[in-house]
């Protein structure tokens, strides 16, 4: 009973963070800022939901799957964000107009001039 309550609390926290992540995906201006919301809030939110599932289920094969799911989300989500943002920058997708500095672009131009 108490275990179910704690698990439910974790699941609700996870859903709340997922909600903020999705809100950020809609509201933020460009692909890089949207990735920020998508990697942080959604990683943490999904991990919260899975952890809540683990607490409700306990140490059976179902709970273990939830734990392993958390590990894989933590390992893969930053890598995916890195790959998407790098590809977007190489495809010359413009940054939002609020952007104040872009060191990556400067260094890329230098490299192209020297080669």
């Amino acid at each position: 009973m108490i275990r179910e309550t704690i698990g439910m609390v974790f699941i609700f926290i996870g859903i709340a963070f997922d909600f903020f992540g999705v809100l950020g995906l809609v509201r933020l201006p460009d692909v890089y800022n949207r990735l920020q919301a998508a990697t942080k809030c959604v990683t943490f939110g999904s991990a919260g939901i899975l952890f809540g599932t683990f607490i409700i289920q306990g140490f059976n094969s179902f709970g273990f799957k939830a734990l392993i799911g958390i590990t894989f989300i933590f390992l893969t989500s930053p890598v995916a964000a890195h790959a998407i943002s790098r590809a977007a920058h190489r495809a010359r997708i413009p940054l939002a107009k609020e952007t104040i500095v872009d060191e990556y672009e400067k260094d890329k131009e230098l490299k192209e001039q020297t080669t």
Binding site: F20, G21, L23, G24, R27, L28, P29, D30, Y32, N33, A37, C41, H89, L95, A96, E98, T99, I100, V101, D102, E103, Y104, E105, D107
Partner: peptide, 15 residues
């Protein structure tokens, strides 16, 4: 940041 009505962001790429 996301819930703030003005979206207080100042993005950029640094090294």
């Amino acid at each position: 940041i996301v819930a703030h009505p003005m979206l207080p962001i100042k993005p950029g790429i640094v090294k």
